[in-house]
């Protein structure tokens, strides 16, 4: 048996990585197509604020982060939907506000420590059984949500106004999508790290969009790229003693480069044949 599979912590990290590799691209498909990629980064910083408060108060940082991300998702969605501020400006206000609170709380609590680093950049040693159970439960909820409302979400991704005129309840679907995205970001922190989870919502989706024809096929390809990035990235991290989050995201980027090369090669072949 390979060494990577002989350690329980590594098996937990791989299971967590696979769950993140499925969850992030499934939600990320709708986030990217609606050009709301900044939402992922914003909610990640809101979650970081929750982690900082949790660590400082010594009260379950993951739970506080989950609560903060949920409230943050609702606030961000309300700001976006009501159009009081331009979408990106509203997100920037929440992002930098949360980061400022996080920095102040971290400073007041005595600065950075190992725990905080594992939340920021992910760590294969830090994935606990509870993290896995929470990720698995979230995966069931997200897959059920996307399965049942796939057509509605596809309508919204295509054109929000068209979706509304078709009778899609875009108001509460947008809210649920934002809350689930916030929860995914928060629970993925231990594996990928809060600063890099946004990349897992975006990069595997770009691989899917480059390679696949059709929305379902693009999502399936994105999930495949996400899982492959997680497993290969964690393997590199284990054998190379590298940061888990960094290795996963760099693997995803490598897949994106390969996907672009493949598309260019196909175009070149088609031109050569013609």
């Amino acid at each position: 048996m390979p060494a990577i599979l002989q350690y329980e912590f590594m098996l937990r990290a791989l299971a967590g990585g696979i769950l993140v590799g499925v969850l992030a691209p499934v939600l990320g498909t709708f986030v990217v197509l609606r050009r709301l990629s900044l939402i992922a980064d914003t909610l990640a910083h809101v979650a970081l604020m929750g982690v900082a408060i949790g660590l400082a108060s010594r009260f379950l940082p993951t739970l506080v982060a989950l609560l903060a991300a949920t409230v943050g998702a609702i606030v961000v969605e309300q700001l976006r939907a009501r159009g009081r501020l331009p979408g990106d400006v509203a997100l920037a206000v929440v992002l930098y506000g949360s980061l400022a609170v996080a920095v102040v709380v971290i400073g007041a609590a005595g600065g950075f420590n190992v725990d905080l680093f594992s939340f920021l950049f992910g760590s294969i040693l830090s994935v606990a059984p509870l993290d896995l159970w929470l990720l698995a439960a979230l995966a069931v909820v997200v897959l059920l949500f996307v399965g049942v409302f796939f057509v509605d979400l596809a309508q919204m991704a295509f054109d929000d106004n068209l979706a509304r005129v078709s009778g899609v309840r875009t108001d509460w679907l947008n809210l649920v999508l934002a809350v689930l995205t916030g929860a995914t970001i928060t629970l993925s922190m231990r594996v990928v790290g809060v600063l890099l989870i946004g990349a897992m919502l975006v990069i595997p989706v770009l691989v899917g969009l480059r390679l696949a024809r059709g929305l379902r096929a693009a999502m399936a390809t994105a999930v495949l790229a996400g899982v492959l990035s997680a497993v290969a990235g964690l393997t590199f991290a284990f054998y190379g003693d590298l940061s888990a989050g960094g290795s996963i995201v760099l693997t995803a980027l490598l897949l994106l480069v390969l996907a672009n090369l493949l598309v260019r090669l196909q175009l070149w072949r088609r031109k050569a044949a013609a």
């Binding site: 057509v151 295509f158 078709s166 899917g208 696949a212 059709g214």
Partner: peptide
């Protein structure tokens, strides 16, 4: 960036409420 085919886009028009 939208990956849907022409058939997929047109079939979105058949929406008639949530369909599990």
């Amino acid at each position: 960036d939208f990956p849907a085919t022409v058939s997929e886009v047109v079939s979105l028009g058949t929406y008639n409420g949530v369909s599990p």
